[in-house]
Write a protein that binds this DNA or RNA. Sequence first.
RNA 1: UGGGAGGUCGUCUAAUGGUAAGACUGCAGACUCUGGAUCUGCGUAUCGGGGUUCGAGUCCCUGCCUCCCAGCCA
Length: 564
Amino acid sequence: MPTEGAIEGAAPKPSNFIRDIILEDNVSGKYGGRVHTRFPPEPNGYLHIGHAKSICLNFGLAQEFGGKCNLRFDDTNPSKEEVEYVESIIEDVKWLGFDWEDRMFYASDYFDQLYAWAVQLIRQGQAFVCDLTAEQIREYRGTPTEPGKNSPYRDRSVEENLDLFERMRLGEFPDGSRTLRTKIDMASPNFNMRDPVMYRILRAEHHRTGNKWCIYPMYDFAHGECDSIEGITHSICTLEFEDHRPLYDWYVENLGIHHPQQIEFDRLNLTSTMLSKRKLLMLVQKGFVSGWDDPRMPTLSGMRRRGYTPEGIRLFCSRIGVSKTNGIIEFALLENSLREDLNRRALRVMASVDPIRVVIDNYPDGQVEEMDAVNNPEDESAGTRKVPFSKVLYIDRDDFRENPPKQYFRLSPGREVRLRYAYFVTCTGVVKDAAGEVVEVHCTYDPATRGGNTPPDGRKVKSTIHWVSAAHALDAEARLYENLFLEDAGEEKDFTDTLNPKSLEVRTAKVEPSVKGAAPGTLYQFERVGYFCVDKDSTPDKPVFNRTVQLRDTWAKIEKAQKA
RNA sequence: UGGGAGGUCGUCUAAUGGUAAGACUGCAGACUCUGGAUCUGCGUAUCGGGGUUCGAGUCCCUGCCUCCCAGCCA
C-alpha cells in the first residue's frame, strides 16, 4: 500500500465517524483489535471515481490500523457479470496504489458453503421454497402502510423444502419458477424483512463457475456470509444499504457465524459528473463515447488515460472526507487536487494548441539557437533542456490581440513582450488574409535580451509568452475535453439529451521537439495552457495529447468579468 | 401519511457541553522569465421554535426540509 507523501502528510487527516467506531472497537476489544475490511465490487462495469472513494476508505483504514483489506468480487448475478470487468477492476485498484496481497476472492468461491447454510436455515425452519411468481411475490409483499401476506407455501415441511431446494439446484425447475425464501416477518415495516428471497433459479453461464449452478444467492444472503467467512470486522458500504443491515445481522446471527459490523457511508456525488454504472454502460454501448476508457468518462480507466494520477485521486479522496450526509462535491475540488499533484511532477514544455505564425524580421535567416529551458520549476532534479529558436515561430493565437482590451498584457502592435527563455520581441505589424483575419504577426527582437534576461537598460516587460520554432515543431493532435454533460441531469429525463456536443474538440498543435517519442501516459504541462498526457493513439509520426486539465487562468477570469 | 438515515460558510469536512475551524470556490493584494506555482488579506454557516445549563452546533421536546426503501439487481 502506498505511503502517502508530503502532499497528503502535510495536514493531519481529519477524523471521520468510521475511524471513531474502529477506535472504540479497539478499546472495547470487540474484534481483538483486529481490523479487516474489504472492497467488494460487482464485476458488471468499470470502476469510477465514486469507487475510488470506497477503495481509499477500505484500504486506507486497514493500512492505518495495521489491518488487512481484501478484494472481493461480488459475483452472484451471472447475467450481468463478465471477466472483462474483473480484469479492469484488478488493474484499476492496483493502479490506484493498493495491494490486497494474496487475498483476492469471489463470492462464487463460497457458493458451496452458501448452499450448505441455506440448507441449515431450512432445517431450522427459517427458510422455505416458494412457488409464487415474481409478480405474485410483489403483490404479497404489501405496501409501506399495509403489511404483506404470507406466501401459501410458507408452511411446507422441512423435508419438502429440503427436497424442493435440492431439486432447484439439480435443475428440475424452470428459471423463475421457484425461489428459496427466508421466513422472517411479512408485517415488518422494513421490506427487506418481508420473507426476502435467498436464491433464485437462473440459467446463465457464470464467468467462474460455468454451468455448475443454476441457482444463485441474492446479495443479502451472500454478502454478510462472505464477509463472515473472510473474517471481516468492518463491512463498509453505502447509505442505501442501511435498510439491509437488519437482514445482514439476521443471517449471521441465525447461522451462528462470525458477525462483522456493517457500517454505511455516503456515496460520492460530483457536480456535472454522472456516476451511474447503468448509464455509463449505456454511453459505451450506444457509442456516445469511444469506450470505458474514453478520457471523458469518470471511470478510473478513462481518468488514467486522460492523465489523472493515483496520487491526485487519493488526495481528492482524503479531502472529501467520509460522513453520512448526502452531499455533492464540487468538481473544482477534484481538479485542484489533481493540479496540486501534476504541478509537482509534470515536465514543462512549450506548445500551442491554436498556433499563429510569427516572423522575427531582424533575426538572421537560417540561424538556429538552442535556448536553455527549465523542465520543472517545482523540482530542480528534473533538470533543463535545450529548445531550438529560429526566425519563424508559432505562438498561441490568444497571446496576440490586434486591439488589446484593458489589462491585456500580451503581444499587440507596438508592444514588447518576452518570449520565454528567448528574447524580448516587439510587434511591428500583421499580415491578414482576404477575410481580414490575422494570419501572421511580425516582430523585431532585441539581441541584448538573449535567454529572456532583462536587458542592460533594465526595461521590463509585462508579459512572457511561450513559442515553438516553426521549423522544429512537431505536429501533434491535441484533444481538448469539456464536461460530457451540459448540466446535472434530472432523473426523469433522458440523460443523453444533455450530452455536451463540444465535450471533445480535436486540434492540430505545434509542440516543441523535446517530446518526440514520449511514451503513452507521459505527463506534461504545456506552459501557460494546461496539463496534457500522451495518449495511446499516438504514432511515431504524430503524437496525440489529451488535455487533462487546464491551468488556472486568471486572465480568462478578468476577461469574463469585463464582458459581464 | 410505513420504515430507515440525514440537515454547520456557496461546496465538502471538523469542533465529542467551553473562543464555530480547515480545505475548495469567490473577491482583493504581493511576488513572478508560466496572468501557473507560492504568499497575504477579506467574506459568508450551526434548518425553525421552545427547553435544560453558568455555558448548547453538541443534551431534551417540537416543527420543517432532504435523501433511501415495495428487483427473483447489487
